[in-house]
Amino acid sequence: MSFFRVGISALVLGVSLAAAPLGAQATPLDPVNTVQIAGAPKAPTTGELTKNHASVLALVSRAEPLSPANYTPKDLRSVSGTSLELRQEAATALEKLLQAARADSQSLSALSAYRSYDRQKVLFNGYVASYGTDYAMRISAEAGTSEHQLGLAADVGLSSGYCNLKSCFGETEGGKWLAANAEKFGFIVRYPSDGEKVTGYKYEPWHLRYIGVEHAKAMNASGAGTFEDYHAALLKASKVKTPSASDIKAQRESLLVLRFLPPYRDWSIGYDFAR
């Protein structure tokens, strides 16, 4: 099914999908004004976007916490060669990404993946103890608000350990390779360097979020600066009603009337809503 069904154009939504990357966690002011979604892949439903934590397009943040807070994915499995877990689809994608990196002479390793509510709670509280609450909230998610708990997020770094979990990772050859190739495997770099006002988090070039190949490519080919932007545009599109046969007929009939009004111009030409 195409993203817009028969008779629906991008003009109906007043939105667009053009060019940018990555990101994610507070709500942008008006993202759909800059995000084009015409031609995006399979249209998700409103429920998939807002209520289904099993959806690869689920948005989890402080503004959109998990419910229940101790949610656990049902299809977790180990990522090959590690003790880390991800959901089945994401684990397979990450394995392929790491294999491709090795084929391109980039030695990357998975550093972290699924975290339970309890594990995230320990980590966040540790950051609070070390740095204070304000800074801790810029670098870590409170338990029940972390993408890692979805089983769809992974932290990736250099096998050498150089610049791992630091912003300088983005300037390494491995970090640049990751940013350029993540979408081919269904991942986005979730927290971009210019996205903190939207996401609530500092730049994390190592943090990948799985959203599926089609959506990763669509987002990175769009004007969506963060996943929040892309998600908001998808949500708006999911609420647009597809015109029925009777709607199309009524549109045609109203245009037909215009043909016989002064100055007797054929107003219907070029306005066939059934095409």
Rank of each mutant, 00 (worst) to 15 (best):
F4S: 06
R5F: 09
V6W: 08
G7I: 04
A10S: 14
V12L: 14
V15H: 08
T27F: 12
N33E: 12
T34E: 13
V35A: 05
A40W: 06
P44Y: 06
T45K: 08
E48S: 06
T50R: 10
V60C: 03
S61A: 03
R62K: 15
A63I: 09
E64W: 14
P65W: 04
S67F: 10
A69E: 04
N70Y: 01
Y71H: 02
T72F: 00
S80A: 15
T82G: 07
T82A: 10
T82Y: 07
T82W: 08
T82P: 09
L86I: 06
Q88T: 15
A93W: 04
L97Y: 10
L98W: 04
D104M: 09
A113H: 02
Y114L: 01
R115L: 00
R115C: 00
Y117K: 00
D118W: 00
D118K: 01
L123M: 04
L123P: 01
S130P: 00
T133D: 13
D134C: 02
D134K: 14
M137V: 10
I139H: 07
I139K: 08
S140K: 14
G144A: 05
E147S: 11
L150Q: 03
G151H: 02
C168S: 14
F169N: 04
F169D: 06
L178R: 06
A179V: 14
K184H: 09
F185G: 04
F187C: 07
I188A: 06
P192S: 15
E196F: 05
K197G: 15
G200P: 06
Y201Q: 14
P205D: 10
I211S: 02
I211V: 12
G212F: 06
V213H: 03
A216N: 01
A221T: 09
G225T: 08
E228V: 06
A233R: 01
L234E: 08
K236P: 04
S238H: 02
K241G: 00
S244M: 09
A250Y: 02
Q251C: 09
R252M: 11
L255T: 03
V257G: 00
L258N: 11
F260K: 14
P262W: 12
R265G: 13
R265A: 15
D266Y: 14
D266P: 13
W267T: 11
W267C: 13
D272M: 05
